[in-house]
Design a binder for these strands. Structure first.
Lengths: 226, 226
DNA sequence: GCTCCTATGTTTGCACTGTAAACATGCTAG
DNA sequence: CTAGCATGTTTACAGTGCAAACATAGGAGC
């Protein structure tokens, strides 16, 4: 009887190995999950994508991972910590996607436009993730240095472009950090306003084109050059 | 006696009209509060200011107003509705403060800078209110047209400046709506990033000066004019 | 090979939240 | 004076984040 139960549990263990499409996929049949931390992150990401970032509940995440309500606390001190981890992940994606948008054979100005559009596209494609990254969802951001670090890393893409533009005399000779922040702030503002639906009912023929013109204006300036 | 009480209550009615600083102060000693709606808004505003926007609880607001937990539902269908009301209020403040910053005798460009700085100052002085207005705190913004209306009203200050600049040949001849949005996005981006502490540990001598330079760059452009 | 430690789970419990439903109260119009 | 209605209250429920105590298994040391 004891032997039987052992056998059964082993059998079940084998079975779970076969019919795995949901995240665990380990030989662990019960209890120790194997890779819960990642499973939680993944479940949380999906939940955010589908239901919005402020509807995210730790308990629901745990439920989705097939685990008890307080299990996540073994891997994240806080709900906030989970969010921070997701945000850092988001910053990295953002950095990758914007970096991928710049073509070194193009001019620095074209590069800025491309990065800006990629940034906005990212924000509109993953609005909830974007809100998580920048919005006030995460409490006490300053308590998590990794957040600001990955933020700065994302900014670095733009700084590099600014440096290139200055070096090639394409841009005005200012602090590249200033130029980068100028562009970033602009793009961030556009993305936020777009997500919040400010451009939805505006009399705009094409959003894409509108964004491009906004970005161009950033480069050429508003004041008529005399 | 009946006549007297009527008289007294009329007198008090006249008085409340005069000496209104705190919300209640009515002849109503209990039950019907008098002006609960405003009291709730005020209490909520304070709570947001002091504890942060995402810590706001309707029950705590009710408690602060000295009223039962569900009383607010007689005045706001939702917690969200309360937040919307506060956000609209915030937009109006924002519009007033930015409008007050523009001096008609100045150039349009100087006006844009002044408005931008006033905007950023507003955001930094009332960060939680600002987060409420723009952040993802309010759900389904598009369901509340008054939100977008007051948002557009705030934008109108900038549009007017853009029109003035274009008319006086100070600015390039583009759609004023485009210029206004360009400036607004920029300023909004700066404010958001500043609130999120992105500039806190940056190597910046003076924040104020940094903001001014960022805004100036918006006007003059990044690309070297040939 | 046995035992204990520790990492990782679970259960239980608490204080709190938003909100629905039913009930109470008192101003006001008929 | 009274009926109705706006505005309160009480009660209840499902859901939340999290702390504390308990359970389990896999691996380190004997």
């Amino acid at each position: 009887m004891l032997a039987l139960s052992t056998y059964v549990s082993a059998l079940l263990g084998g079975l779970t190995k076969l019919c795995e499409n949901h995240p665990m996929s380990d030989d662990k049949n019960s209890y120790h999950h194997g890779d819960l931390r990642n499973a939680l992150l993944q479940a949380a990401a999906q939940q955010i994508r589908e239901q919005g970032v402020d509807k995210l509940s730790l308990r629901a995440v745990a439920r989705a991972a097939g685990v008890s309500a307080t299990a996540p606390y073994r891997h994240f001190e806080d709900k906030n910590r989970l969010l921070v981890a997701l945000a850092v992940e988001g910053y990295q994606q953002l950095r990758e996607e914007t970096a991928a948008a710049v073509d070194p054979t193009q001019s620095a100005a074209e590069g800025l436009i491309a990065v800006g559009l990629a940034y906005i596209e990212f924000a509109l494609r993953r609005p909830e993730r974007y809100k998580l990254i920048f919005g006030p969802v995460i409490h006490e951001r300053q308590a998590y240095p990794e957040l600001q670090e990955s933020g700065f890393a994302a900014l670095q893409v733009v700084v590099a472009l600014a440096e290139r533009g200055i070096a090639s005399d394409e841009f005005v000779d200012t602090d590249p950090f200033l130029i980068a922040n100028s562009c970033w702030a602009k793009v961030h503002g556009i993305a936020s306003l777009a997500i919040d639906g400010f451009y939805d009912c505006a009399p705009i023929p094409s959003q894409q084109q509108f964004f491009r013109e906004l970005l161009l204006l950033q480069l050429t300036g508003v004041v008529r050059s005399k």
